[in-house]
């Protein structure tokens, strides 16, 4: 059921909106990871961020692409929860401290072992329009104990103007998407975040 609703949602609604109404300029599309388990670490400005990244994938792979989101936000009411589950197949993360640190990423790890590709925003929330916030450590804690999982940074520009936080009016602007080289080796969260910041700073045109 989830499979079909997600597929239909992207085929009939999201992909037409992203590619026809919004429009993308994609740099280095070939660097997009197509084999799981992999993690995508994009900058976060808008709800459209997740939609754009998922739409970059062909429909045959869409089932494998799973965003990770805060449970306190995406599960806060029935409608949002339904949407998160049936259209995005979101992995909820309980960041409020109700689950122990060891169990926090269990669902993510299961998905990565299943060869899924996860989208996790290292900034945490969307922040101010078209501005980067400080990177958090969650991404590092999720991937640190896993082998063969790469982190691919993606920088998107323009979505914070199209649909910023707290606005309901969607105004289309072409979005520039730049995909970076996968980061494979890192020992500390600082190291990982330095690498990510390095990419984000240089991707800004």
């Amino acid at each position: 059921m989830k499979k079909i609703t997600k597929l239909l949602f992207f085929a009939l609604i999201m992909k037409p909106i992203i590619f026809i109404i919004l429009g993308l300029n994609i740099k280095n599309r070939d660097k997009l990871p197509t084999k799981g388990g992999a993690v995508i670490a994009p900058n976060h400005n808008s709800h459209l961020d997740t939609m754009v990244i998922m739409s970059l994938y062909p429909l045959s792979l869409i089932e494998r692409i799973r965003p990770v989101g805060a449970a306190d936000y995406f599960m806060k009411n029935k409608i949002l929860a339904c949407f998160s589950i049936y259209c995005l197949d979101l992995i909820p993360l309980h960041r409020d401290g109700s689950t122990s640190k060891e169990e926090l990423f269990t669902n993510c790890h299961t998905a990565l072992n299943n060869k899924d590709i996860l989208i996790l925003f290292p900034e945490g929330s969307r922040g101010k329009p078209e501005q980067m916030s400080r990177l958090k450590k969650g991404l590092f804690y999720m991937v640190k104990d896993l082998e063969n999982v790469s982190v691919t940074p993606i920088y998107m520009e323009g979505l914070g103007t199209s649909l910023p936080r707290g606005e309901a009016l969607f105004v289309p602007f072409v979005c520039n998407v730049s995909i970076g080289d996968p980061i494979v080796v890192f020992e500390t969260s600082k190291q990982l975040n330095t690498e990510l910041n390095e990419f984000f700073t240089h991707a800004i045109t």
Binding site: E130, T161, L169, V171, P172, F173
Partner: peptide, 22 residues
């Protein structure tokens, strides 16, 4: 129009005026 308004850097607050342009 979308391409034009996307390449020139327009102020973030202009988005509602751009909506009228559309």
């Amino acid at each position: 129009l979308k391409e034009f308004l996307s390449i020139i850097s327009i102020r973030h607050v202009d988005r509602r005026a751009v909506f009228w342009a559309y």
